[in-house]
């Protein structure tokens, strides 16, 4: 086992080395990032339900939080691991389940939009890879007037 111990003097020189590497603009930029962090769109709890062998339609679930002061619009989803992906919504009407594609989804400032089983989901069509629990798959969310957001979705056995 290797133990690394840093004396206060060596720590100081380590910091100095780091700052000199970051350059004159590095530190202010870092501060700026830290300040703007809460004003963002975050994606969390992304997962894909493991499907039986040969299944051509899978569902991904996640949570999008709009921490911006303006409305954002989700316009689509894509993944290199699937031929196509769409935004879908399941609705229950008098005991009948209906699944429909949604072109776009507006998320208000401060809104937490959940994609859950039996509600909204991202439909992943025709997998190009084996979708096995424990692996992750990269999903790219597309927004209107907003940069794409990439998320690693965990493949899990559905609950």
């Amino acid at each position: 086992m290797t133990t690394i111990s840093l004396s206060p003097a060596s720590l100081k020189s380590e910091y100095r080395r780091l700052f000199s590497r970051a350059g004159a603009w590095g530190f202010p930029l870092l501060l700026l990032c830290a300040c703007t962090q809460p004003e963002a769109v975050t994606i969390s709890d992304a997962w894909i339900r493991e499907a039986p062998p040969g299944a051509m339609r899978l569902a991904a679930y996640l949570v999008i939080e709009n921490k911006l002061s303006s409305t954002i619009t989700l316009t689509g989803v894509s993944s290199e691991s699937f031929a196509t992906a769409q935004i879908h919504q399941t609705t229950m009407d008098d005991g009948v389940a209906r699944m429909r594609m949604i072109d776009e989804l507006a998320i208000e400032p401060g809104q937490l939009q959940s994609f859950n089983p039996g509600g909204m989901h991202l439909m992943l069509i025709n997998p190009k890879v084996n979708v096995v629990a424990g692996d992750t798959i990269v999903l790219v969310l597309h927004f209107a007037k907003q940069a794409d957001l990439t998320v690693d979705a965990q493949i899990k056995v559905g609950q």
Binding site: A83, T84, G95, V96, M99, R100, M101, D103, N126
Partner: peptide
């Protein structure tokens, strides 16, 4: 058991002809 067939709006990239979904009772 209520069953009805509805076309899905957009074409699937692999050229699958029968692109529809099935509305069905969940009982």
């Amino acid at each position: 058991v209520a069953v009805s067939y509805s076309p899905l709006e957009s074409a699937v990239a692999d050229g699958e002809q029968q692109n529809y979904t099935v509305d069905h009772s969940t009982a």
